[in-house]
Design a binder for these strands. Structure first.
Lengths: 154, 154
DNA sequence: TATTGTTATACTCTATAACTATA
DNA sequence: TATAGTTATAGAGTATAACAATA
């Protein structure tokens, strides 16, 4: 069997995947998620509970099914997340008079305050993280991602 | 307790998260991943095994540690992936004469052929998926993601 | 009959520690 | 002692089916 020389430059070894937007997206996201977890950890929140809480604050009265749809997660998996938020007194599941199957989700005052603080912190840290891009580039990146989601995700 | 009206427009309910690039990235990626899984399923590959095979084809002689680093996954988790590729005769773990602890990863002829075909298919489907963006926008999106990773991921 | 929230469960992904064989 | 590959395992995250209460 022939001798083999192992490449020494492992840093640029993923070249064949460099042409795929999906791959670039995945690698970029993992950097953002690491930063996000760190920041939200200070508030006792995970990314998904932060998202859930933020939406409940913005759209009080949402039902669990609506929230699960908004987050694109399964209703069953949302239960644990809401138990967590509710257990900390950040949200309540209010009864809906017209339909007793549904829960209207509402943030408590404490939940609103925490959501506000966490959003500010995330915004600050995202700004720092993306400071290697110009403000125009940051805006364009978000615009392109959002446009793509709007068109391709239909 | 006051009556509650539940919002009827659940589609735009994630507004408070719309300002975060990370959130836009996550939602965009999940669309790409769904498409990718579908395409790669036809080749009996998952995203991670496709990535691994592609890199081995491009960089023959890589060791497992180098490949794990390139893919940013744990060495331990790479083992199963390589067992899978090796079991299908797509790659081999060749012995390295200078260091008998290491395995030099090499794609077989069949592995090279499959990688080539899968890459073409992924490229085609990614092009179709991103057709809602102009070629300039697609290029810019990839450039921004790559620049971000290069700068922020250091 | 259908829907809402819930439980249970299984399956994938990821992370960590410890082992072996080599260096 | 340290490194490469491996094993085992635990913890997330995610997906599916089925149930009780209600419509």
């Amino acid at each position: 069997m022939a001798e083999v020389e192992t490449p020494s430059d492992a840093g640029q070894v993923d070249t064949p995947l460099a042409e795929f937007i999906g791959y670039a997206m995945k690698r970029a996201l993992s950097i953002v998620q690491a930063d996000l977890s760190r920041v939200l950890g200070g508030f006792g929140l995970r990314a998904v509970s932060f998202s859930a809480l933020s939406i409940v604050v913005a759209q009080p009265g949402l039902t669990q099914t609506q929230l699960a749809d908004a987050l694109q997660i399964e209703r069953s998996n949302l239960v644990t997340i809401l138990d967590e938020l509710s257990g900390r007194g950040l949200i309540i599941r209010a009864p809906v008079a017209q339909d007793r199957r549904r829960h209207a989700l509402m943030a408590t005052a404490e939940g609103q305050t925490l959501a506000q603080a966490a959003q500010t912190a995330v915004k600050t840290h995202e700004r720092a993280l993306f400071s290697c891009l110009t403000p125009e580039e940051q805006h364009e990146l978000k615009r392109l991602l959002t446009k793509f989601r709007g068109q391709a995700g239909a």
